[in-house]
Design a binder for these strands. Structure first.
Length: 962
RNA sequence: ACCCGGGUGGCGGAACAGGUAGACGCGCAGGACUUAAAAUCCUGUUGCCCGAAACGGCAGUACGGGUUCGAUUCCCGUCCCGGGUACCA
């Protein structure tokens, strides 16, 4: 019987579906285990081989856990709101809901092909009103909450109002406006508009103003990566910063808990570090500097510094170009220069401002006054200081900060040395260990000790305060777009001003209205501003961003059909945290932080019982494309050759193309061309080789399928080829997997050719899940061979079934137990590539042993099942089992078959391995020394010398030191 | 620029806690079976040197240093590639 993956896989996929074998219950006596994939955005391009990498890994683990006796939740859904669908709608007039549905259907077909163990009855789509009803509901809870710093948790805004009525805001300083103070009496005297205005400064979801990339020509707001060199990626129109009304989430209130929470979860250190750095908690001081020549009582220049100890090393100040004081303080002489500089800055995206090595800046003409020395310090403005961080102004200490130093050097500003020998005059030294000099009352102090003293002095003088600062900003939570969740907010008075009122829960979901056009509304508003019925109701015209729906979807899977709640407490208490979350590292700081914040918020408000969503996180690497290149000749010379070769394109094989420029190359090409065009008279004057991407799917390894190539493009139908060894060899380039580069490989094609089981295993065999690597289809043959080799343990081409019920030998049992142990270990530590390799080694050994014994093969099938579920199920039933292999118990390793009494030790002389000796594992140091020193090869290397010592590491190695 | 990750044969990778570098697979080369092909099987495959052979030598995990009896693994510095940098998902 032949291995026919097509029949086997189709059959089991059908039966599994019919039997609802992947249905998961919220009630089980078995322990729960929740395996989650980051759900995909259903793009029009469909899945390529990069997507399923994580899905296959999680599927293997979910199946493995099921074999281990767990009740496993393994759901899938779609992050279905997003910009591409909206752009597609703008371009093609197709409603995003329709294109999204089509894309989802396509994704689903592709996923079904691969045989994932998803419980599809739990599928969620963020764009489904039944789902976003609850996204809106959670938003309303955020809107209706503030962060109580005393309780260190989110509380209903009602509690705040009651507190205001009693004590004013004495206990709750305003996070949105720290200067705001009022008493109970004042509060009660405020009118409703003023009260609501104040409350807005406290809400966890609040409305404010923020700068966006505004493109007047497109009439729309652009993402940073849609802006290239100050102009729009599409169309190349100018882009400027514009202040727009925006919703925000007060994630900064959760900064400390997001940091603390990292200690309770199992993420990689790199991931924790990235999130920690993103939050960027720093301790320092805010210091107010008087500005020279400004009237008394006018604004001071407030800077934030993490190094108050360097107060006397300040040589200049730098304020962000957006700083509100800039206009006020700029001197008349400097105004033209500053204005010119601002025009330049306005055209630059934040990304460019940060990435640029080039130093730019402009003197404002103003001076700050040093609070202790009284010196006048020039105030500059430069784009390297960002408005959003700290106070948007810094005191520059060039001897201690490299960027300040570079800036000082560039503009020829003086550098004061306050750290003596620690500063070499060539680069800044950020040390905290130096003893301060030139620092007045701080002289002689070690820098790290000086910090406290400096702050104390500043506080005494009333010009500075100790300050904890976060690099993280509040999360912009609105988009001027159509294809997103509408905000369940009505503006009384006028749209976008006045009072934001929450819609009642009964009005949810507030569904997206149908529109005919997706273009932007007036004044940078979203498309919803064009809908008269919408604006007539004074509904908010912004929509929520992509990460809204993905911030809580893992909870909806637990209770996907609940119409009374986003997720019942019973369901979330049962499933709790996601035990294993697999997804791309590109979501490290966005999605992961937002969803962690939402989880903490829902926990604070008592809706769920845990405050970290993901117990363990694995980041899958990216699959890069492996492009194939063909080399087309551009010819010039006699015999009208340029025209001829335009109509009959000529391609040279990679090896030939590599000779480009050499006389041999010229000769070889000339000869071939004369041949091709049957014109011996052709003389080539110039030969250019232009590399072109060719569809990787018509290349076998690196060998081009010439016939397929001719069919690929009509203009290549008559193409001619200059071969090497009768083959056309393509060039190889590793780059992003993208349609444009023709290097996209569709899993469907591979499944059709080799079967899902082979495809799954190959994708794992490629390398560690967490590592990025290029895709190369060629190697899949090896896995296919392995699967057929495994099949032959059960079936022989001529003899048919070959398995027997004889008792297994000790050797055979050793082999299978060794394999079980290796596969189990590998799976446990998500090393699926070595898991596959362990299965290969096992099958190779059993084949060598000619082992066809059911006792052994039974076990082999079960450990194979997570990796190749269809094949395992088929063989499982063929061996006579009547229940599914999905529910077989994972075989237990009998350790007694694995214990060895001796080991082949590598014997090294001075760290270089020279020989091997078989020595008992329980040998003592003395016995080992005797055995080793008696060995001829060791004697040879000792060359009569007495060894200094013999290093003996049990079960590892032996090293003789001479 | 900043933060994080990575760099090992012709290729993907293995080496799990500092202990035999190159498991497993691809590719390639040679061979067996076959009229032939496919399929399958066997042998070899880091480089260089010596040699009839070797279970002979030297070098070798991006590069330069260091720690150690011993470093792909730890530390310092450099280069290159990938991800992220707040409205791509």
């Amino acid at each position: 019987m032949e291995y026919n993956f097509g029949d086997i896989e189709k059959k089991w996929q059908r039966l599994w579906t019919e039997q609802g074998i992947y249905r998961v219950s919220n009630n089980a006596s078995r322990p729960k285990y929740y395996v989650l994939d980051m759900f995909p955005y259903p793009s029009g391009a469909g899945l390529h081989v990069g997507h399923p990498l994580g899905y296959i890994a999680s599927d293997i683990f979910a199946r493995y856990k099921r074999l281990k006796g767990f009740n496993v939740l393994h759901p899938m859904g779609y992050d279905a709101f997003g910009l591409p669908a909206e752009q597609y709608a703008i371009d093609h007039g197709i409603h995003p809901a329709i294109s999204t549905d089509n894309n989802i259907a396509n994704f689903r077909r592709q996923m079904d092909n691969i045989g994932f163990a998803y419980d599809w009855t739990r599928e969620v789509r963020t764009s489904d009103p039944g789902y976003y009803k609850w996204t809106q509901w959670i938003f309303l809870q955020l809107f209706d909450s503030f962060y109580d710093k005393r309780e260190n948790k989110a509380m209903p805004i009602e509690a705040l109002v009651r507190n205001f009525e009693k004590d004013g805001n004495a206990h709750h300083p305003c996070p949105g406006d720290t200067a705001l103070r009022f008493t109970a009496a004042e509060w009660s005297a405020f009118d409703r508009l003023r009260q609501q205005d104040i409350l807005m400064h406290y809400r966890l979801a609040y409305c404010g103003y923020g700068e966006v990339n505004w493109c007047e020509a497109l009439g729309t707001v652009l993402a940073n990566d849609e802006v290239i060199n100050g102009v729009s990626e599409r169309g190349g129109f100018p882009v400027v910063k514009k202040k727009l009304r925006q919703w925000y989430l007060r994630i900064t209130d959760y900064a400390d808990r997001l940091l603390e929470g990292l200690e309770t979860v199992d993420f990689s250190d790199a991931m924790k570090e990235m999130q920690t750095n993103w939050i960027g908690k720093s301790f320092g001081a805010e210091i107010d500097f008087d500005i020279f020549g400004q009237p008394a009582g006018s604004a001071k220049l407030r800077v934030y510094t993490t190094r108050p100890d360097t107060l006397f090393g300040v040589d200049f100040m730098v304020i962000a170009p957006e700083h509100e004081l800039l206009q006020t303080i700029t001197s008349a002489e400097q105004r033209p220069a500053v204005d010119e500089y601002l025009t330049y800055v306005k055209s630059r995206s934040e990304r460019e401002r940060m990435a640029e090595k080039k130093i730019t800046g402009c003197f404002t003409g103003a001076f700050a006054i040093h609070p202790f020395s009284g010196l006048h310090i020039p105030i500059w403005t430069s784009e390297y200081v960002l408005a959003g961080y700290g106070t948007g102004a810094i005191m520059a200490v060039p001897c201690g900060d490299q960027r300040d130093f570079t800036f000082a050097r560039y503009f020829d500003l003086p550098v004061t040395n306050i750290i003596g020998d620690h500063f070499n005059g060539l680069e800044a030294n950020p040390t905290k260990e130096a003893v301060l000099q030139n620092s007045s009352f701080l002289d002689g102090l070690v820098m790290k000790d000086a910090m406290v003293i400096a702050i104390k002095k500043l506080e005494d003088k009333g010009i500075g305060t100790r300050k904890v600062n976060y690099r993280m900003r509040d999360a912009a939570f609105s988009r001027q777009r159509y294809w997103g969740e509408p905000f369940p907010i009505v503006w009384t008075n006028s749209l976008g001003f006045g009072i934001a009122e929450a819609l009642p829960e009964t009005a949810l979901p507030l569904e997206l209205p149908h529109v005919e056009k997706y273009g932007p509304g007036p004044e940078g508003e979203g498309p919803l501003a064009n809908v008269p019925e919408w604006t007539a109701r004074h509904l908010e015209t912004n929509t929520m961003p992509g990460y809204a729906g993905s911030s809580w979807y893992f909870l909806r899977y637990m209770d996907p059909h609940n119409e009374d709640s986003f997720c019942s407490r019973a369901a979330s208490d049962y499933w709790g945290q996601v035990d294993l979350y697999i997804g791309g590292a590109e979501h490290a700081v966005g999605h992961l932080l937002y969803s962690r914040m939402w989880t903490k918020f829902l926990y604070d408000r008592g809706y769920i019982g845990h405050e970290e969503p993901y117990k363990r996180l694995i980041n899958q690497g990216m699959i890069q494309g492996s492009s194939r290149i063909v080399y087309r000749l551009e010819l010039d010379g006699s015999g009208n050759i340029d025209d001829l070769s335009k109509h009959t394109p000529v391609f040279v094989s990679a090896g030939v193309a590599a000779m480009q420029g050499s006389p041999e190359f010229h000769e070889l090409v000339s000869l071939a061309v004369r041949n091709i065009f049957s014109n011996a008279g052709i003389q080539l004057e110039s030969i250019n080789v232009s590399p072109l991407h060719v569809d990787v799917n018509i290349v076998d390894g690196v060998e081009l399928d010439i016939e397929a190539f001719k069919k690929w493009r009509t203009e290549y139908a008559d193409a001619e080829f200059i071969l090497e060894e009768d083959k056309y060899i393509c060039g190889v380039e590793v780059e992003k997997m993208s349609k444009r580069l023709y290097n996209v490989v569709n899993p469907n094609d591979l499944v059709a050719k080799y079967g899902a089981d082979t495809y799954r295993m190959y994708e794992m065999f490629l390398g560690p899940v967490e590592q990025s690597k290029p895709w190369d289809t060629k190697g899949i043959e090896g896995v296919y061979r392995f699967i057929r080799k495994l099949w032959r343990l059960f079936f022989d081409e001529t003899k048919g079934k070959v398995w027997k019920t004889d008792k297994a030998t000790e050797q055979e049992l050793k082999c299978i137990y060794r394999t079980i142990k290796k596969v189990e270990d590998a799976t446990e530590r998500f090393s699926f590539n070595t898991g596959v390799s362990a299965l290969m080694i096992g099958v190779n050994e059993l084949t060598d042993l000619k082992c066809h014994k059911k006792e052994v093969l039974d076990r082999l099938i079960v450990i194979l099942a997570p990796y190749a579920p269809h094949l395992a199920e088929e063989l499982w039933h063929l061996l006579g089992n009547t229940t599914s292999v999905l529910d077989a118990p994972f075989p237990v390793v009998e350790e007694k078959y694995l214990v060895e009494s001796a080991k082949n030790y590598p014997i090294a002389i001075n760290g270089k391995t020279r020989t091997e000796l078989n020595i008992a594992l329980d040998a003592t140091q003395q016995q080992v020394e005797e055995i080793v020193l008696a060995d001829d090869i060791v004697k040879k290397w000792l060359d009569g010398n007495t060894p200094k010592k013999v290093v003996y590491v049990k079960n590892k190695m032996i090293n003789v030191v001479v």
